[in-house]
Computed example of a mutant assay.
Amino acid sequence: MLSRIEDTAVRACLAGGRHLRDRFDADVDAEFARHDVKAAADRASEERMLAVIEESCPDHAVYAEESGDVSTGGDYQWVVDPLDGTNNFVSGLPSFATAAAVLVGDGGRPRNDEADETGLADDDGPVVGCVYVPVTDDLYVARRGEGVTLNGEPVTADGGVPTAKATVGFVIGHDVKLDDRMDEAVTMQSALAGATKRVVESWSPCVHWGALARGRLDGMVCFYPDDEEQHVGELLAAEAGASIARPGDGVYVAATTESVRDDLLATIE
């Protein structure tokens, strides 16, 4: 079953991502708001991804970023992000991706006392994940207990850079920008900037999760992240062997080494 689901996730992400690549740098059809942007390419990519999923897995629950709950019920739940990095896409910046995660259980993230050393509960959360970065033609695939591949080759989140030389991605959820949690996010980002070489404010988290999974990015710090990117990101991090922590209060930290992880935690406390 998981092999079929994995194959479907790959085909869905490629279908959406290749459409995005064809439309990239063309005339922008988008609606701009203060804290968000909606692009026609987003919806078109989602249509192509959903067509693949619905044909192969008609009995699965599906949640898509643009459409919401497409279907409910079943033992598996899909979480689909048809364009991670919409703002980048419409701005002509080549950092964007398509992503899909498939979850079992109730779909929620485990409590700290339910998580194993990878940060995932035994019978809950993502079991298959796929991220496709169209511009670089990078395809990341993760399956619970079987690691991560990049374009078919295994990768790991190995690293040896000390925290002071580390490059770290910082992710905040969309809702954070709308309330007083944004003040806390700004404080966290400033503290991280003082402790590391560089903090990348991530507008395309799935791209950066892939970079962490292959050991190119040294850490990721998330503050109330959005499910569309976080489920697949957590699976990539866990299966790539990253050191993970969930201190609570909407915070998730992953790094290539335990020492960097611990330093990042201490920095944002």
Rank of each mutant, 00 (worst) to 15 (best):
Y132C: 07
N151F: 10
G233W: 06
I172G: 08
R216S: 15
S91V: 02
A12G: 07
H208W: 14
A237Y: 04
V80T: 06
V62G: 09
C222Q: 11
R181V: 09
R246E: 14
Y76G: 04
Y63S: 08
G147F: 01
R246V: 08
D183A: 10
G152I: 06
M1E: 08
A40E: 14
A40H: 12
L83W: 05
V207C: 12
A100I: 10
L103N: 13
L192P: 03
R48H: 09
D27M: 07
S56D: 15
L265S: 05
V70R: 13
E269P: 01
R109I: 14
P94Q: 09
D123N: 13
S243F: 12
I53L: 15
D262S: 14
D7I: 06
D138R: 13
V221S: 13
G160E: 14
I172N: 06
G119E: 07
Y252D: 01
R261E: 11
A164V: 10
V133F: 00
V186S: 13
E228H: 06
L83S: 11
A242R: 00
C130R: 11
V79I: 15
E146Y: 08
A115L: 03
K177Y: 05
G152M: 10
R34V: 13
V141M: 09
G219W: 02
F170P: 08
D137I: 01
A255K: 00
T257H: 11
A15I: 09
I172V: 15
A61W: 12
D262W: 03
R48N: 06
R11G: 08
R34T: 14
D81M: 14
T163Q: 04
D69F: 12
A164F: 04
E55G: 05
D7E: 15
F96P: 12
E269H: 04
E229I: 08
L103V: 04
E55W: 00
S190P: 00
I244E: 07
A40P: 03
P134R: 07
D25G: 02
R214T: 02
D25T: 11
L217S: 09
D158E: 15
F24Q: 12
D179I: 09
L264Q: 11
I5K: 00
S243E: 13
G107T: 04
A33N: 10
H19D: 10
Q230E: 14
I5Q: 01
E54C: 05
G145Y: 07
C130E: 02
V161I: 14
